[in-house]
Amino acid sequence: MASADGMKGRARAAGAGIGVMQVRIVLLVSLLAAWEIMARSGLLYRDVVPPLETIGWALVVLLSSQAFYWNLGVTIAEVLAALAIGGSVGFMTGVLLGGSRFFGRALEPYIYYLGPTPKIIFFPIMIMWFGVGPGSKIAMGAVSCFFPIALSAAASMRQIDTVLIRVGRSFRANGWQMAMKIYLPAMRPSVMNGIRLGLGIAIIGTLLAETKLSNRGIGYLIMQAYSIFDMPRMYALLITLFAFAIGANAIVGRFGGHTTGK
């Protein structure tokens, strides 16, 4: 960012430096006010945009119900299982592809180009293979998070400083010691970033599968709210879901140590 607006931006920011927090508050308040006006104006269908107070109450009711925590537990268990399966397979694939130039060039393009395809279309196959229960949701999450984790593991293998590897060899470290003392610590930031991306995608994959066909989990609760047209509850569910996704992301980000660039 050797930027053209560098000096100009800094000069302006100095003048308006006090403004950033205020602007945020003004934006938030105007957004909420606009929402409330829309809700009370009657211009939109009743309940499509419910008043903030109604959403707040729905959130309180949701958070105080036992069924919500049970369903949240189901979703968390599915996402964790998906991350464990997809992540470990992805990591091993990435290490294999990143460790060998030949295998990397032969097979990595398939993962690279398959990565940005819509994974949810595999859901009918997953239902056939793993049934209509949690198995197919876990499989969806695992397939979704496999790609970013495999790609980041392969990239991090290639980025390991050769000096570190030579140091390990000069100490006559065995395979296990090389893996634990040299490779894994050097790969950690990049792999953690991959896991962070993978976790986000695993959450999406698992929950989308739950919205399509399920009788438990947060995705199921969202579709239940949709089918009975309980919009305040749906908003409350979406808010908790976003909080859950952001929280999960922050936890993994903390383990990553924020050392990665992007």
Partner: peptide, 17 residues
């Protein structure tokens, strides 16, 4: 933050709208 948020899960909302 929005770029990495699970926005696609809002589809039932737009389904209603």
């Amino acid at each position: 933050a929005l770029a990495s948020a699970p926005i696609v899960l809002m589809y039932p909302l737009f389904l209603v709208i």
